[in-house]
Amino acid sequence: MDIIPQLILNSIIAGAIYTLVALGFNLIYGATKFFNLTHGVLATAGGYAVFYFGKTLGWNIYLAVIIGIVLAGLIGYGLDKIVYSPLRGRKASNMVLLVASLGAFTAVQAIIAILFTSQFQTLSSDIGGQKIYEISCPVAMRSICYGVGSAVITQTQVLILISGILIMAGLAVFLKFTLIGKAVKAVSDDEEVAKIIGINTNKIIGYVFFVGSAIAGWAGIMIGFDTGIEPTMGMSLLLKGVIASIIGGVGNIYGGVLGAFLLGFVENFGIWKLSGEWKDAIAFLLLIIFLIIRPKGIIKK
């Protein structure tokens, strides 16, 4: 039973990571109503940007993180302008958009693998000395990380948790009180009507892609500091984000967060007695059960 505090904590950490993915995904889904599968690979891109600028080139790590976030946002924005926006203009079906995003996903993932090889990389290391230590806690330094009961949490994980909550709160405030935020909500509710009342929907959706993708980039960077990155990590991450969004209530920001934590708990308690390799299968079983008995998610829109 000693393991329970750690299980709970692991569930919360996993939930926080999925929250980061689900927040951006849900924001984009809300505005565009299609499953944007490239979302996962943008997390990978963010992580690798930090790996390149921060570790290979040895730039200031904070600068590298900012570059990583902006780069992920820009790739998302660019994909919208080049691929999704023309398709939307043509009233393409969701399946077309899904396949196109699958293609973009495959291409970007392979480009990352060509540039950085398929090897597993970790972002936290000695490069930058103290600075990196501030936002990460490698396994070797567990003793100085916070202990909760008999459970351990690293500083990176604390940061993941706090940033997840902050980003959620920030998004909520942004959507509720700013003009652009209200426009995003209008586009999410009904794109046609939003157009009629004079909202430049394409521009708004472009912003949404930028912000959503930047959040994904942040998620990828955090995972890079927490465990590590590899080119193929995007798919599993994306699917967790999608599952969290759907079981929580797709297109609803709070729903996504709720779904993310539920998924984190079910996964981590599910592998209590099974091997960790079953995680993905457990996540999808949860999704399928939800889709059958409660297809609109916990919080219905």
């Binding site: 691929v83 393409a92 396949v99 196109a100 293609g103 495959t106 970007v108 993932q109 060509i114």
Partner: peptide, 23 residues
């Protein structure tokens, strides 16, 4: 070493282009 990944890039891009121009 790159040919296998390059194939993924090419077919990924092909999928995108097909969806755009010839679904």
């Amino acid at each position: 070493s790159i040919a296998a990944q390059m194939r993924q890039v090419v077919y990924g891009v092909i999928l995108v282009l097909l969806m755009l121009y010839r679904p």
